[in-house]
């Protein structure tokens, strides 16, 4: 049995004016212990929203529409927020957020925030014992631990803040860590260090299963076992990293890969190809394939016929014409 199962998960935002934004639509996948899944897709395709769903933490204005998330055989949907807080967050599923600077309370020292995490999940911990535990964990992150722990977020560099966030998020050894574009705001050197650090923690068995979200596909090639590509709230293709990078089948994945690869090799003179057009508005009901308006290979019926996920070989593709 898979440790982590997402079954037809759909989520929507309820806007002030009563409109629904269907930010995640019919997403399904399974993950086994020790696996690393990469999720890629343009900004606004619903990656961050999906993360909320995966943690079972749908806070207004986000509401679950249908589907379920099952962690270790336990369903997350339909449980009270208090239960989720106590048993799931930080313990089973933990998130490394996008933009670590804003994620840290500006008026709280790193050690105090870390202690708050422990105190919120474990009773009767002495301050000294907690500090020791936090200190040992932060040592693994390769920082000037004592200084960082006793600093306020503004006193730290961007890299140190990101590391602190990683340290705090993985403090209680969660089963599953979801990293939501953990490096997108950092410079290349720091990026590499942070990714190295995450994998170091994986190696040191601090956690074993991970979802790595990014809009940079080339990064995923080196990092992930499998890759899931999202477009306009839906999964369009899901397969091994090799398959998706070197042999994409869905027209969107193809376009994305060629754009990315050509961008990588841009120095050699190939012009990166941008994908024409814009993704659809998620408020409206969309008939037919969501990518059809931008698809080079679109057939006339693509715009009216709803595409379902199909198994092609040993991968999933949401395109009737892919083979």
């Amino acid at each position: 049995m898979a440790t982590f199962e997402v079954k037809n998960l759909s989520l929507h935002y309820l806007t002030r004016f009563g409109a629904k934004v269907h930010a995640v639509s019919d997403v399904s996948f399974e993950m086994n212990e020790g696996e690393i899944l990469g999720i890629a897709g343009e900004s606004g395709c619903g990656k961050t929203t999906l993360v909320s769903g995966l943690m079972g933490l749908c806070l207004p204005p986000l509401y679950p529409t249908s589907g379920d998330v099952i962690v270790d055989g336990e369903s997350l949907m339909g449980r009270t927020p208090a239960e989720i807080r106590e048993n799931v967050l930080s313990r089973k599923v933990s998130m490394i957020p996008q933009g670590a600077f804003n994620a840290l309370n500006p008026t709280r020292k790193i050690k105090d925030l870390a202690m708050d995490v422990i105190e919120s999940h474990e009773e009767n911990q002495s301050k000294k014992a907690m500090y020791k535990r936090i200190y040992d964990r932060f040592e693994l992150l390769g920082m000037d631990t004592a200084r960082v722990l006793n600093s306020f977020p503004v006193q730290l560099t961007a890299g140190e803040r990101q590391r602190s966030v990683i340290g705090i998020s993985t403090l209680l050894n969660p089963k599953m860590v979801i990293a939501d574009e953990p490096t997108s705001a950092l410079d290349v050197t720091t990026q590499k260090q942070i990714i190295g650090m995450i994998f170091d923690l994986l190696e040191k068995k601090v956690f074993s299963t991970m979802i790595f979200i990014t809009h940079e596909l080339p990064l995923l090639r080196h990092v992930a076992d499998r890759i899931c590509v999202m477009y306009a709230a839906e999964v369009v293709e899901l397969g091994t990293a090799e398959q998706l990078v070197f042999d994409p089948r869905h027209p969107y994945t193809k376009a994305l890969m060629s754009a990315m690869l050509s961008a990588e090799e841009g120095a050699k003179g190939r012009k990166p190809e941008a994908i024409e057009g814009a993704p659809p508005n998620l408020v409206n009901e969309i008939a037919g394939c969501r990518f059809a308006p931008r698809c080079k290979y679109a057939h006339p019926e693509c715009k009216v016929k709803k595409m379902e996920i199909r198994i092609v070989g040993d991968r999933q593709v949401r395109c009737d014409y892919a083979e």
Binding site: I84, L89, N102, E119
Partner: peptide
Amino acid sequence: TSYVKYAKTLGIKENKILMYIFRN
């Protein structure tokens, strides 16, 4: 703010988060 959201994803207790908010 993001820090409140992050604190919530960490499963920090409600009253602690309230204290953050009040202080800030």
